[in-house]
Design a protein around this nucleic acid. Structure first.
Lengths: 348, 348
DNA sequence: CGGGCCGGTGTGAGCGTGGACATCTCGCCG
DNA sequence: CGGCGAGATGTCCACGCTCACACCGGCCCG
């Protein structure tokens, strides 16, 4: 639609000004919605802009204002479902507010890499940086970080320098644990995420405190790393312990992927879910309703998390002191949980 | 580490120049690796740069060079595993080449939205735009698009204006189909992806032509939309047809997520995989080895796709005429496939 | 009836950098 | 020993835009 004169020298404000018979400054005022422009002039300039298909040059504007209306997003290995969804929500909220998003996906969350990424963003004149990760290294790096722009942490604890928003992991874990206890299980075993993840620890805390609240024994959690494969290993291990006589009737896997691995291992071992063991996950992957059996889990609203990240950024940019509340998770009950089997050793 | 004088007026080239006792232009030459600088001077400037922690201002540079060393990535709803992984590979390759990535995630792939995104990128002075999608609307929009920067398509057919790179969908589908035929299945049913996806059609073509090659009958494909839920519906439908006497022994789901839904439906219907029906997917999700049973599928190297996208961009930017080859997929055989059951109706 | 004020507009400067060109200093060769 | 070229460095300007200020006309009020 926009003709953009075939000559193709990129359009600048002066071209529009000439076309509309005004000065470039008036064009600037129209573009930036300044008030003191006569309606009729504004109209004429608007028309010239659309007719020529003019778009202001962000670099030139950034040079003088120091702002690019861009948010830098730094994250670590976004290959999980959650972070990817969060990024989606963040980008969409940012775009709605007129901001672009520039991403930097670190291979690992060292302080150096973090610093490097933030520096790159700063030299790009981003208006704010959002850090999306749950790992301690990253959190530590963030805590040290001074930047000349607002720094917002998503899904990881904030330091003094910056704000943070996250899903309430502890509540989610409590919901799941209580659900299992309510079904009559004497206790709940836990397959945890990596030890250096705040998210993983939050889930452990919730699980542990809910067990403690009803005086249930707290078994030693098994160590996983979010991958289905680690869930599978944990499943093997639990099955072996059951064969050895230990009573395991309910398992809380720290995410759905590990729950899937567990499920596979339990099937291989001839154990039925939820007949012999009830199993819950965390995240509510789109796949979770189609596991065999469909998985009881906790839904995290990742997109909302991204939106709140942007809210926080905008608040900081406009000087508002917004204390964000954590995003509440919700329990999704499906077929992978049920009452514990009669108090004998499971048939193996 | 970098002190960055507590006064905190952002550092500029002139500061470095003063510190090193040279002109700002010499600093510029050092920063840009220009050759005619005395080694000793270079050394002195380098030291000043690191001592002060100086980073050049991208906006100012962009204003004069017209380049930001940024790649704009426009994509549609990245909530699938594939695109997310591709983005990962792309960002990492871009960063390795000294480029940043700015993302724009469209809600739907209309020509208008596409044009809008590209325009935004152009006004940001990106050096190139990469479009990552498989939908016809997007492809159509791309075909019409003229941009003053290179435009590279990933996973979607290119037009005249731009290059494209993708995974060879047809070959992948042929590998799966042949695998099933080799196991002795008389034919293979197909649950297709959305009709407006080039990827989905590529898989149909491969499947169809492989069946045709051995003279096997070509059943009408069922329509899915990539989601587990649509796979589930397709599974229900197939089971009903089997009960009605139709012989279905092998099913090719156009992606792993649909395969999961199918698996769930078949289980519900009391059918065994691979005892009654062999099932294959496409993508090789990290979860696929832990399905019940583990899923035979085709692996797409999404990260490689991202890397090639960047290669293509760099080639275009340096004027090289690189004709990209499609990324080859590879067959991953797991436990969801086996020989067909004896030629009677399956036990239902 | 004149001065001040205000809405609407234009003019000039400067943001931080890279490119073109000028300059200056060698070293080398005739 | 002078001239010349190449390497090293500096000076100036332009990139496209916004900001500060000057300007111009009309209106109100003293």
């Amino acid at each position: 639609m926009p003709p953009e004169a075939a000559t193709s020298r990129p359009l600048v404000m002066a071209d529009v000004a000439a076309h509309a018979g005004v000065s470039h400054q008036t064009v600037s005022r129209v573009v930036n919605g300044h008030h003191s422009v006569a309606p009729q002039t504004r109209e004429r300039v608007q028309r010239a802009i659309t007719e020529l298909g003019y778009r202001p040059n962000v670099a030139a504007r950034a040079l003088v204002t120091g702002s690019t209306r861009t948010i830098g997003l730094v994250t670590v290995k976004i290959n999980q479902y959650g972070p990817a969804q969060t990024m989606l929500g963040l980008e969409s909220a940012a775009r709605a507010a007129g901001y672009s998003v520039s991403v930097s996906i670190l291979d690992d969350a060292t302080a150096v890499a973090m610093r490097e990424a933030v520096d790159r963003f700063v030299s790009q004149s981003v208006d704010a940086v959002v850090a999306l990760t749950t790992y301690d290294d990253a959190a530590e790096a963030l805590r040290m970080l001074e930047a000349p722009v607002p720094l917002v942490a998503v899904q990881v604890g904030g330091g003094e320098n910056h704000l943070a928003v996250g899903v309430d992991q502890e509540t989610g874990a409590r919901l799941l644990t209580r659900h299992l206890l309510d079904l009559g299980h004497a206790t709940v075993h836990h397959v945890a995420g990596p030890a250096d993840s705040q998210e993983a620890r939050g889930r452990i805390d919730g699980w542990r405190s809910e067990l403690a609240a009803v005086g249930a024994p707290v078994p030693e959690p098994l160590q996983g790393d979010w991958t289905p494969s680690s869930g599978h290993a944990a499943g093997r291990c639990l099955a072996a312990r059951m064969r050895a006589g230990e009573r395991v009737t309910a398992v809380f896997a720290a995410n759905d992927q590990m729950a899937l691995g567990l499920l596979a291992a339990l099937h291989e071992e001839g154990l039925s879910v939820p007949g012999d063991v009830s199993l819950v996950g965390f995240d509510d992957l789109p796949e979770a309703p189609y596991f065999t059996p469909p998985l009881t889990t906790v839904r995290q609203d990742f997109a909302e998390l991204g939106r709140r990240g942007v809210q926080l950024v905008l608040a900081r940019l406009s000087g508002v002191d917004l204390r964000p509340e954590p995003v509440p998770p919700s329990l999704i009950v499906r077929a992978s949980t049920g009452p514990p089997p009669a108090a004998s050793a499971p048939r193996v």
